[in-house]
Amino acid sequence: MIPAHVAAQGAGVPLSWDLAQDIRQLFEFHFMVNAFRAGTVVAIAAGLLGWFMVLRSQSFAGHTLAVAGFPGAAGATLIGVNPAWGFFGFCGAGAAAIAAVPRARSGTQGGGFSEESAAIGTVQALALACGFLFITLYRGFLNGVNALLFGTFLGITDGQVWVLVGVAALIVVALALGGRLLLFASVDPDVAAARGVPVTALGVAFLLLLGFAAAGASQITGSLLVFALLVVPAATAQRMCARPAWSIGLSVGIALVVTWLGLSAAYYSSYPIGFFVTTFAFAAFAATHLATAVARGRRSRQAP
């Protein structure tokens, strides 16, 4: 299925000057079409949940859930089941473990937050250590580790795409039903709790969904670079626009553009996709920060 010249040098197809022909060539192979399908689905899910993650300042938890995909995939390969089971199983378990730690309250001084972060850090280190154990036990696998950690777009099957579509549909439906309540509970937990919103239950459900989104995204960008799709588009969007609906839309849009550009660049060059996705995402982030800083400086000069 993967053409020999692509497999041999890990992509790296010559680029011509004819844009239309380049795009046609991009979709010439079935594996590349699948990569775009999977990337699109993953970017939508990551852009949506990443937005809420940034709003709730749970980046550290999100990062931990993302790396939990690595032991999942390694363990599944070790016992010989479909990696998807490992991805979603471990990310779900990681979400449950983090949910068991009492959530720090922003009002309390120091203690609560540091306690939570120490627990999350321990979960993360343990997850990565388990992944390392699994790949050591499964000897022949060592060459695939880099793909697992840093992402690959080669060899995504139709089955994987359908699994990703199912998970993304679950996330979209869940957010459509509970998004408003989650927004309320994230922005002002005390008032939300007083109005009868189940704040704790929503937090746990959110972590589980975040785990699923991270598991899906780590199949494209690799476990270590999921963050590029989860946090950076959301952070950029929140910087650009304060209204929730517009901002969420922007977050998804940036995630999509970054994924598509990253896939195309990785296809035409010989460097890994993880590098391109993170670089494009960070470029958007840095540009937005620069633009808002310049705008603020101009406004403050005009004001007096």
Binding site: S59, F150, A235, G274, F276, A281, F282
Partner: peptide, 18 residues
């Protein structure tokens, strides 16, 4: 904030992959 730290180190790790 966490978001800035996270965005920066995601990119630095991407460079590491390169």
């Amino acid at each position: 904030d966490d978001v800035t730290i996270g965005s920066v180190f995601a990119w630095i790790l991407g460079l590491g992959v390169l």
